[in-house]
Design a protein around this nucleic acid. Structure first.
Lengths: 211, 211
DNA sequence: TTGTAGTTGTTAAATTTTTCACAAATTTAA
DNA sequence: TTAAATTTGTGAAAAATTTAACAACTACAA
């Protein structure tokens, strides 16, 4: 099967959100044209993105909001619950524990680790914080699917190594550093400063910025 | 001048970080090959990205780490200080106030706003929290360049409207909702759940995921 | 039932982005 | 001083992505 671009996956997430909102408002059907307009894309792009995975619409009518939403959820793997662990409950980590979008999309933080004795064995939003030294053993026991890394850059690689050794196949990294993982493990890094750098670039170079 | 793609800008940020790290380690020169290897790109891409903005290297030798870093900083507009305001000191907002990467790249949070009386007029990491009702007037007074929105989805558009009216031209939105801005105002949205959705997609569709 | 308007799914065209390939320039060694 | 080894910068080729166009199908009105 043809491989799917990151951009397409990203847009599927966007479509899914748009459909969620529409469903909440009781809207039953939607056309590629409407969906595209709301998200500032083209109808052709919406249809093309969906066409990689099947045909979900009805000619002359459009898409059933609920059905398309469910189909996209299936494609993205968010029609199920995922067990997530968080390593590091500093500023960033804490905010993620309370981030409501995660459970809403099926991502449930089940374990929290830290290496600060003042945090260990205390509850953080109903989850008991474990000692980071127990990372490997606890991850193995708990069938964790995804680990979020929110530790200082200096220890990120070491934490990642242990997570990989525990058999976890997906990592979301908030530490502002490059980490390497072996083949077969997926890692995505988030760096919020980079988002601001886009803005500063755009401010400085208004004319040559590409929408 | 040719317009620059988002991917190129993103990679410039990546190069800049890589160069910062190398400079800290006392490394003087670097080739496109090395820079590419570290960031899992191709040397041709590195050179192409840079070529949009000028020629910064020496044939046969490579690039001066410091000079290239400074040049990229100039291109990205991070060779200066930016005044940033934050609206909303909930979970996400709080973590941003303490996010060390921001000041490191020249983004300084100077004002904080909230609408919760319990937070207003108290200090949050040395910054006095202002009443959100004063948003427009205070933004105008303070020559704020960029505003970060970290409020609930339900009020995001209203906050954005006021920010725009105050004349701010760049917004970073953490509220999980679509907001519209007039022509000439740049907005970027960050949704951390989408990052997890990439991972769940990759887990579910290992084979068709495109590196 | 027929005709018209609307919308999808998909092939083809256009555009954008990435990679290739190499001349030009520079360094280093002999 | 010359030759060999590097590495940049860039035009051209290749690959990927987006957009356009349209046949096929559906809904609905007359």
């Amino acid at each position: 099967m043809k491989r799917i671009s990151l951009s397409t996956i990203y847009r599927l997430s966007i479509y899914h959100r748009s459909l969620q909102r529409r469903e909440e408002r009781g809207i039953q059907t939607i056309s590629s044209k409407e969906l595209a307009r709301e998200e500032k894309l083209t109808p052709a792009q919406v249809r093309k993105d969906l066409s990689f995975f099947g045909s979900f619409g009805t000619r002359g009518l459009g898409y059933s909001v609920k059905q398309l939403k469910d189909n996209i959820a299936g494609i993205l793997g968010i029609n199920r619950q995922w067990n997530v662990a968080l390593v590091g409950v500093g500023n960033v980590g804490s905010s993620l524990v309370s981030y409501k979008e995660f459970p809403k999309q099926g991502f449930n933080i089940k374990l929290i680790f830290d290496n600060d004795q003042r945090k260990i064995n205390k509850y953080h939003k109903e989850i008991l914080v474990s000692d980071a030294r127990e990372l490997k053993t606890k991850l193995k026991e708990s069938s964790i699917d995804i680990v979020i890394i929110a530790v200082p850059a200096s220890v990120a690689q070491e934490v990642v190594n242990q997570v990989v050794e525990a058999g976890v196949k997906a990592i979301l990294n908030f530490a502002p550093t490059n980490v390497v993982v072996p083949e077969g493990v997926i890692i995505r890094s988030v760096n919020m400063a980079i988002e601001l750098e886009h803005l500063s670039f755009a401010l400085v170079n208004k004319s040559l910025f590409k929408a």
